[in-house]
Write a protein that binds this DNA or RNA. Sequence first.
DNA 1: AGCACGCCGACT
DNA 2: GTCGGCGTGCTC
Length: 620
Amino acid sequence: MSKIAAVRFASPLPQLDREYDYLIVEGMSLEVGSLVEVPFGSGKKAKSGVVVELKEDSSHKGELGSITQVLSIHPQTSAKILELCKQVAQRQASTVGEILAAALPKRFVRVEKNISPLAKLESAVSTGVSELAEALLKAKRVHYTPQLIASSDDVPSWALDFANAAKRELQAGKSSLVVLPDYREVRHFELALEHLGLSEFSLKHVSTDNGSARYGNHLLAQISCAINYGTRTACFSAIKDLALIMLWDDGDESHIEQSSPYWNSRDVLLQRQQVEDTHLVIASHSPSAESLRLIDLNYLVALRAKGTKPLVRITDSFTRLDDETFALVSKCLSDGKPVLVQIANLGWASAIACSSCKELRKCPSCQSGIWIDPSGMYRCRNCKQSALLPLCTCGGANTRPIRIGASAIADQFRRSFPNTTILESNGDNPLLSTTASGVLVVATPGAEPDVVGGYDLIVIADAAQMIGAPRLRALEKAVGSWANAISLASKQSLVIFVGLSGVIADQIKDLDFEAIVGGDFQDRLSLGLPPSTRLASVISSNLADFNLLREGLEKSAMLDRLRFLPSADKFCLVLDYQYSDGAELANLLRSLTNLLTAQSKHKRPGERVYRINMDDSKVI
DNA sequence: AGCACGCCGACT
DNA sequence: GTCGGCGTGCTC
């Protein structure tokens, strides 16, 4: 029996970011991952922590305290996950405690009393031939492009491929982990599990589930082999005999943690693959620039499923719905077939202008633009609140909409096709699926609902506008959202891209998403922009500490390898760095900000002086 | 985060 | 003299 336990606290504080050794009282049973209560600090106040190591002796010179009690014998996490937390903390210039806080679920004592292991899958059950599962026998890490359109049963191909690969592992007595961007894709994967009769062998890890269900599955994952699936926090679920990790649509922004320390599923799972020595699949209809980079480096082996693709029609029309497109929509609807129209902007209009002087109308309090939301309210882009519209500076009262949005387009369709069901779906008000037959759906990118049998016509009405957005990843994001929309097509579907010409039009003809994203990737490579490099950002809470940080970096040994980029935010420092310098930069930023935070004259309770993001995709 | 220690100004 | 202000630093 070990005598000493090293304990860690799930706290973001850098002062507490280390292991503390405690004596294990005789007769106490615990293991790595157990939750314990220990006396801590000068007041010997009880504090709960996680056992991270069992050992015989301590390097600590002073006297050791004793563990007061074992709160839960059930391990909350595993040694491998603790190692993963350390590595992620290192890369994100964060603390282990902060990552650990993300890795530990909320505890529900009652759940611990009645957990029983999951049933075992009979290994005799035959498995269908799966290209993906076959490829995994040959390569450790795979990038997978599934068949674009579902071949049957309205279950997406990728979800069936994932479930089949997971089934094969389960038959070999191994677990798998599937990480999905959002609830929609969770539902798709569940459909595949149901289709293959695997539901009872699976464990769901999503934050929207009630806490006790989630905690129960968290504990079960460590004692039963299963198909584990969930959204991004599932990246840190401790799993028994994990052999396969699969990530769907790694370019989706839902995979990025929005609060400090801003980790993302792809980076965490790439590290987890190494820590746990598992197989890894990163899959999407349209590749992310990062995964193309990993294929280029031969870190991922590319695999593409064969399959039919819908017909494509491209118009270089400046209007979103030219006469010919409109006629095709009309024809489809009169045949009782479902139609999808993807519109980039939400609401009735993106902006409004004065009818007399043509000036854009601004918010009276902050001078930001005003748009019209789906309920028809005038809203300021900055203060987000509904704005009462005052008279224009020229005295004019009338306005006209600039760039009408999805609600206005849906309204036009309602007038053109009074006998057709017109549905709207957007991120704020998503429609997951519809069963109507002759339906016309107007959706914003990422909110396209499923329809039974698939859409027979899909109109990407804002193709030109989406690729022209002044953002670094505009093209990659646009193509990704087109691919996902088109994956909802029926087998005899037609896809219309409005407003495209030139090289992109040539590439989109064959729905060769990889060629488009790849070309964009090469362009960025030659410009030295992400993902060939990365952008780190540090937001300071005040000007004095912002200047101290900048001075500190300018005096550092890394100065010649860093590039300072201009930033719109006033206290935001943006740095461009090479992947190979990432670990060193993270260390530098962490030690520098820790030092400056300790000395800061401007810190306020509860507020961080510096917020570090080692991979900021929003910054330019 | 807490909590003690410590080194300066105002007070019975 | 000594009570208490909160800046600095440590917690196994």
